[in-house]
Design a protein around this nucleic acid. Structure first.
Length: 563
RNA sequence: UGGGGUGUGGUGUAACGGUAGCACGCCGGCCUUUGGAGCCGUUAGUGAAGGUUCAAAUCCUUCCACCCCAGCCA
């Protein structure tokens, strides 16, 4: 039982769409809330789409309403069944469910045709026979009114006849269009007699060859919303200019009138979101494909190891506003770490192995040491890890001539091997080029488990893997795809490709993992202690494990090292 | 150039005429068998100029900046 005055600070403020919905419910404009997510099946969803998905589904949930999935498939030239499947898969992965409400704009083609006939009969639509170029000329520029098409005055009968023959396929592509008769002088370009149908003798992914005229977005979208009984049609800001037209169509038809509201899209630093740019990255092989772990596509992020929870949380904290904005990648990374830290098992893995021989440890001896699976979750328990005379540590964890802020292993210095013993470095072995190839150390048998009975402290704890028990693996390290926060900030005469981060992918082939990782399965996520979060890539086989680094741990040492 | 929209610390977001708050980042400290996590603290903001008011991020006026629109794309 909570007291209403108890803690006002925990009440989440409502965004402008929620406030509008509250009013609409209060005024009786709508009795219940029904939203929809309306993707065009012409590409793979990315994190920007995740925001639209989450807004629509979350609002429906919050108000006890429903959210439909509706494919906006009015352009057969761009759309494919492969994409509808991909979109469904990604929405489900994000954690949203449209139940049996999977609709298609193409479900409404017949109804739309009848609506169009009604508008023609009412004298509100006409068949135009201007070419695309002519139509553009007649439309005029922003600051001057357009001119009426010479065909604007056709009789209802002639329009009806022509429109029917358009449907029958009597005319070639592009020879006629059906246009709404609104106002060629409107300052809003969308109202200058917008096209409603174009002739397109193209195969549609669902209706096949049944149609050779296809409705435009403006003509189909609001009507689809209306047919489905949508209350709030939420879309991104670029459709704000279309709202007058949206309203005009449903008003003329006298059908259920949903309320369109616009919010600004989600942008992220160091990546690109536009379809055109994403296609270029894939086509020109700057990435391996749509599911490349560096891509902002949901399949890319999934492969990288992102959790749906982290993505949903990002959408939540990004907020819903009309302000154009770009979130910093660190916000996403923080959402991810927050989520992964709580639930993921810790393992030890050495990415850049440096061989260490513990000279006073008996040859052939193996001990099983206890390690904590997740310090954030006592229920995750412990595991045994093998320790022996030869181990690998991270190359970065040793410095021959350490600066004073470095407190890992160095000559004559003692550190703790996590969950094992204190070791001290006695000798550095180098090859002819001066590369450090091996360390000779001694351990203190009294420090088993990591504590010295004499109370002696060490300044660092480092991770390690027993050489004889190590699992070999490939690890792929990812960094931002673009090195510039804004990839579109490029010199004149160049394009965004110049801002690609040359170090966005680094492949390590000789990594040593703790034994228990041998049975890891594709998609499983772990924290490699002191390094970051990693997940098993589908490229893994029984012979060879492949891990992706999802995100690093926060690394304050790396920061002081640079600064 | 016409229309539509948006301006709050570096970034994102609160405030609905009454103490400019939160998150990420940054910087510093505590703690630590992960230089992780956690905890504490610092820094920094109302696009500009006028006006109304006891009081303005909020209301009014003017200006400035940025985004969207001239597809038979969505």
């Amino acid at each position: 039982m909570t007291n209403e005055n108890e803690d006002q600070s925990n009440i989440k403020p409502k965004h402008f769409i929620q406030e509008a919905i509250d009013e609409d419910l209060k005024s009786g404009r709508f009795k219940r809330i029904h939203t929809r997510f309306p993707p065009e099946p012409n590409g793979y969803p990315h994190i920007g789409h995740a925001k639209a998905i989450s807004i629509n589904f979350e609002i429906a949930k919050e108000y006890g309403g429903l959210c439909n999935l509706r494919f906006d498939d009015t352009n057969p030239l761009a759309e494919e069944t492969e994409y509808v499947n991909a979109i469904k898969e990604d929405i489900r992965w994000l954690g949203y469910d449209w139940e049996d409400r999977e609709y298609y704009a193409s479900d409404y083609f017949e109804q739309l045709y009848e609506y169009a006939v009604k508008l023609i009969k009412d004298g509100k639509a006409y068949v135009d026979s201007l070419s695309a170029e002519e139509m553009s000329e007649y439309r005029g520029p922003w600051n001057k009114p357009g001119k009426n098409s010479p065909y604007r005055g056709r009789s209802v009968e002639e329009n009806l006849d022509l429109f029917e023959r358009m449907r029958k396929g009597e005319f070639a592509d592009g020879t006629h269009t059906l246009r709404a008769k609104i106002d060629m002088a409107s300052p809003n370009m969308n109202l200058r007699d917008p096209a409603m149908y174009r002739i397109l003798k193209a195969h549609h992914h669902r209706t096949g060859d049944a149609w050779c005229i296809y409705p435009t977005y403006d003509w189909a979208h609001g009507e689809g919303d209306s047919i489905e009984g949508i209350s709030h049609s939420l879309c991104s800001m670029e459709f704000e200019n279309h709202r007058l037209l949206y309203d005009w169509f449903v008003e003329q038809l006298g059908i259920h009138h949903p309320r369109q509201m616009e919010f600004s899209r989600l942008n992220l630093t160091c990546t690109v979101m536009s379809k055109r740019r994403l296609v270029k990255l894939v086509q020109d092989r700057h990435v391996r494909g749509w599911d490349d772990p560096r891509m902002p596509t949901l399949r890319g992020m999934r492969r990288r190891g992102y959790t749906p929870e982290a993505i949903r949380h990002l959408c939540e904290i990004a907020g819903v506003t009309k302000t154009p904005s770009t979130l910093q990648m660190s916000v996403l990374e923080n959402c991810l770490r927050e989520d992964l830290n709580k639930r993921v098992l810790r393992k030890m893995a050495v990415l850049h192995p440096l061989r260490v021989v513990i000279e006073n440890y008996p040859e052939g001896k193996v001990e099983e040491l206890d390690a904590v699976n997740n310090p954030e979750d006592a229920g995750a328990g412990t595991r045994k890890i093998p320790f022996s005379r030869v181990i690998y540590i991270e190359q970065d964890d040793f410095m021959q001539h350490p600066p004073k802020e470095f407190f890992r292993l160095a000559p004559e210095r003692e550190v703790r091997l996590r969950y094992a013993y204190f070791i001290q470095c006695n000798r550095v072995i180098q090859d002819r080029q001066g590369n450090i190839t091996e360390l000779r150390c001694t351990y203190d048998p009294e420090t088993r488990g990591g504590q010295a009975p004499d109370g002696r402290k060490v300044k660092a704890t480092i991770h390690w893997v027993s050489a004889d028990h190590a699992v070999d693996a490939e690890v792929r390290l990812y960094d931002n795809l673009f090195s510039k926060e804004d990839p579109d900030d490029f010199p004149e005469g160049k394009d965004f490709i110049v801002n690609l981060n040359p170090k966005s992918l680094e492949i390590l082939k000789n990594c040593k993992l703790e034994l228990s990782l041998a049975s890891a399965t594709v998609g499983e996520r772990f924290q490699f202690e002191r390094l970051g979060y990693f997940c098993v890539d589908p490229d893994s086989s029984a012979q060879r494990l492949v891990f992706n680094r999802t995100v690093t741990l926060r690394d304050t040492w790396a920061k002081t090292r640079k600064g």
